[in-house]
Design a protein around this nucleic acid. Structure first.
Length: 337
DNA sequence: AACCTGTTTGGTTTTACTTCA
DNA sequence: GCTGAAGTAAAACCAAACAGG
């Protein structure tokens, strides 16, 4: 069994599949497709039907013919910012996803409604009634009276009015279908904000209220921001851990240097010329200058940080502690000779 | 008017538990 | 008594909707 998932130009990802199934697609179409090719346990047998790929097109504009949709032509949508000449656009505007179709449109395109609903969708859908009040400021004027299908998920995926729905069980919330969400998601990738025109066009295409589209984009932006915050937080956490570790290492190094200094006072009195450098020109300081610097540093014994800084400025590339050790060893061998 | 942010609401999924064959 | 399937209630999660700034 082979499973392939494609975002974007489905024609490329599934060319091998589609070649076998003979499906023709336009390379211009943008789609979200999932291909499933089942090879049965009896591949050696003559079960050709097992080799037939199954491709699910999860966006309304994905290019595979919808043979499971009563041979209806695929309903294709375009983004509001696309012109009719742009890829993905069709002249079939205005008949989009209608899982949350307005009651007005319910009757005229019921076949399409059913066809566009994924049979495997667990998404609920509702029949809505809109009672528009007088005040435009009162958001609740736009009452949604919806009743929930109490049947199985595939039935819930359609927008048909059931007997239960007529009971007037009011809900204010509905879930968008996968197709609607996917289309909004694609729209969001293009533009994470909408101008009023785009909002209206999207709402029309998806058979949603403009307010729903607006809220969806708001929530989507919030989710994006939250995710980004989490990522940033994680990054800062790692930075903090790295710096803490570095700090710990430097503290340890400093302690070792202090111990070295107290155990070998003779060598530490020697001018530490090779341990210092001029902070301005970043060259190793002269003996006199170094002496001055060293004296200063020694006088300010408490200010170990400055010493560490100086040590850290050594141009050799070795770590300061190793360099100090090397110097001590050199002095020791010189003293022995 | 549009957006952000925090909160509420409710649908869906997961989990823990019980019952039963 | 043990096991696995089936059912169920509560918890957890997530997305839609709302309110206020």
């Amino acid at each position: 069994m082979e499973l392939a998932l494609s975002l974007g130009d489905a024609s490329k990802q599934f060319s091998s599949f589609l070649d076998k199934s003979g499906a023709k697609i336009s390379s211009k179409d943008l789609g979200f497709c999932m291909g499933l090719k089942i090879k049965g346990d009896h591949e050696d047998e003559d079960h050709h039907d097992h080799d037939l790929p199954l491709q699910l097109d999860l966006l309304p504009f994905s290019p595979v013919p919808r043979t499971h949709h009563h041979n209806q032509p695929p309903s294709q949508l375009r983004f509001p910012w696309q012109t009719e000449n742009e890829p993905g656009s069709t002249d079939g505007m205005g008949r989009g996803l209608d899982v949350n179709r307005f009651p007005v449109a319910e009757g005229e395109a019921e076949e399409g409604t059913t066809a566009l609903s994924s049979p495997n969708s667990t998404v609920s859908s509702f029949q809505m009634e809109f009672c528009i009040g007088n005040s435009r400021n009162n958001k609740r004027d736009l009452e949604i009276i919806e009743t929930h299908h109490q049947h199985n998920s595939s039935e819930r995926a359609s927008s048909r009015v059931s007997d239960d729905e007529e009971n007037g069980l009011t809900r204010k919330k509905l879930r968008l279908s996968k197709e609607q969400s996917a289309f909004l998601e694609e729209s969001f990738k293009e533009h994470n904000t909408l101008n009023p025109k785009q909002k209206l066009a999207l709402a029309k295409q998806l058979n949603l209220r403009p307010r729903q589209v607006e809220v969806w984009f708001q929530n989507r932006r919030a989710r994006t921001k939250l995710k980004q915050t989490e990522v940033d937080c994680e990054y800062l956490k790692r930075c903090c851990e790295t710096l803490t570790e570095e700090n710990r290492r430097l503290q340890k190094e400093l302690q070792e240097l202090r111990a070295l200094k107290s155990s070998q006072p003779f060598y530490m009195q020697l001018p530490a010329t090779t341990l210092t450098m001029c902070p301005s020109c970043e060259r190793v300081a002269t003996a006199a200058a170094a002496t001055t610097t060293t004296t200063t540093a020694t006088a300010a014994n408490d200010k170990d940080n400055s010493m560490a800084l100086q040590l850290g400025k050594t141009p050799s590339g070795l770590n300061p502690f190793s360099q100090a050790q090397a110097q001590v060893q050199a002095h020791q061998s010189a003293a022995l000779n």
